[in-house]
Amino acid sequence: MKILAVDDEPLVLRLLDATLNGLGYHNTSFATTAAQALHLLESSKSPYSCILLDIRMPGMDGIELCQQIRRMPAYKTTPIIMLTSLAEKEYIDESFASGATDYMNKPVDATELAARLRVARLIQNEYQRSAHLEELNRAQIEGFQPMAPFDFAEPVQIDDVSRVVNSRAMENYLRQLDRLGLFKIGVIGFQIRHAGSLHAANAPEEFYGILADVAESISENTREVNALIAYLGKGSFAAVVPRASQIDRRDLEAGIAATLYEFELADLVDSTSDIKVSVGTQINGSVFGNTPDKMIDLAVRSAQGMTESKPKALAARIWSLAG
């Protein structure tokens, strides 16, 4: 596994060097600035398979560096682990929103680092095994279409939509909040109605386009609460929001319908031809249970179980929101 570790503190890099060597990772490069890291990533003959990033660095910080790395086609899916002593939620949120796949607090614990790297390796292997995603990546890199088919259940990565992360990163995000006892969050599930039929009836790039537009509309309508969103496969999405956000699920459903209408994906009157998204009840984090996996599962089930709004009632709600 080829690793790049970035930290402005040389002693931390020395510690990482010793720890990674002790864990059997002998192919690691080190950078003390974002500029050095970008140079290494751009000039490397073979891509790095995992990147460890400190957050607080002089000049470009780790969060901005993470965003820059994600803009590089070869590093769109590479695991990026933020390794920092900062434990406040704002840094965790910003990291995942910038494309990090995991977040680990200093001091560096060798056992924990080994576990995170194993997960990173699994993520990387998952991507490499998936021929569909490889082709998807290649298509993006080389800029040609059409896209290769992908399974209905595949949680394909939606690129270039603000605050949309991949499903694995969302799980890690929720686990990190759980570890730090930050329970003041909720998860809202979203379900594209008749997603299976849409997947079957549309070309892969068309179905991907629908997913990207739905992701955009969810992002747009949850912008005020800074939700972190992931596509989970099978037409389901989840958004992590502050527990106190008090979002009315019917207003959110109407807002999403209105945005999709603007994208010309939904017809507010003709209910047979449009893309509809149901919104579930917010599932809140709790000291007494509700693991991250369970929260996501409950949120999506809630969205799937919602009855469809009557078109006229939905239109009326949209008008009332607009008015």
Partner: peptide, 25 residues
């Protein structure tokens, strides 16, 4: 304090690291 909080726990001074992390905030 940030510099100390990132390292102290790894070299056997966890109390110093925790204290440094609070000062960092």
């Amino acid at each position: 304090s940030h510099k100390i909080s990132g390292m102290a726990g790894s070299v056997g001074f966890p109390e110093l690291g925790d204290h440094a992390a609070r000062l960092d905030v």
